[in-house]
């Protein structure tokens, strides 16, 4: 069944048809959310929230963008909100110096889970505006035009943020690159 048929079924009142859609897009949304927020219980909660919000939005969904793009847009927005919330929480409960120390420890934790974990940690250390562009383009595989549409920013901004993000990430992943070459 194609996405449109599933949506028609749901609009008719067959909410069970939604299972198919959740299974189809779980991996894509997991990639976006986990790479934005890191592997955490909150990431899964955000993942659930993405699908619930989309379910509520189905009656008004006109299909101007694909289901995948629409879900990704929700996922990115919710992830950015979560990052802001985390920052606020951190600012309230932890003094600046202590927060910097925690960040330093987080960034310099010894690698125990391999390349994937190390790359994920490096991505987490990027500024959210660079992180979102990098995740959408290089992990989710959206074109630069699609990234611009999802984030509602100009194409030039996407390209410049992408360059900056890669530059910063490359600096952080230098040890990994050296190991790979050696």
């Amino acid at each position: 069944m194609i996405d449109e048929q599933i949506l028609q079924e749901i609009k008719k009142g067959n909410s069970l048809a939604y299972r198919e859609l959740v299974m189809r897009y779980e991996s894509q949304i997991a990639s976006t959310v986990i790479n934005m927020l890191g592997k955490s219980p909150e990431a899964e909660d955000i993942g659930q929230e993405v699908f619930i919000r989309f379910y509520k939005a189905i009656p008004g969904f006109r299909g101007e963008s694909s289901v995948g793009t629409y879900l990704t847009r929700i996922a990115i927005n919710l992830s950015l909100n979560e990052i802001k919330r985390r920052k606020r929480r951190k600012n309230i409960f932890v003094k600046k110096e202590l927060s910097e120390l925690i960040n330093y420890i987080d960034e310099n934790k010894p690698d125990v889970s391999g390349d994937k974990e190390m790359i994920n940690r490096a991505i987490q250390s990027l500024n959210p505006k660079f992180r979102s562009v990098l995740v959408l383009r290089l992990i989710d595989g959206y074109s630069t035009d699609e990234v611009a549409k999802i984030l509602k920013i100009p194409l030039g901004t996407v390209l410049s943020r992408l360059s900056r993000a890669q530059e910063k990430l490359k600096e952080k992943l230098t040890p990994l690159m050296e190991v790979s070459y050696g």
Partner: peptide, 24 residues
């Protein structure tokens, strides 16, 4: 190029096993 290839491998297979049931 190496870094971009490594980033391609960051795709996640999904959330926990019970994710679909929780959503449903």
């Amino acid at each position: 190029m190496l870094m971009r290839n490594k980033l391609n491998d960051q795709v996640e297979p999904g959330f926990s096993g019970s994710f679909v049931n929780k959503v449903m």
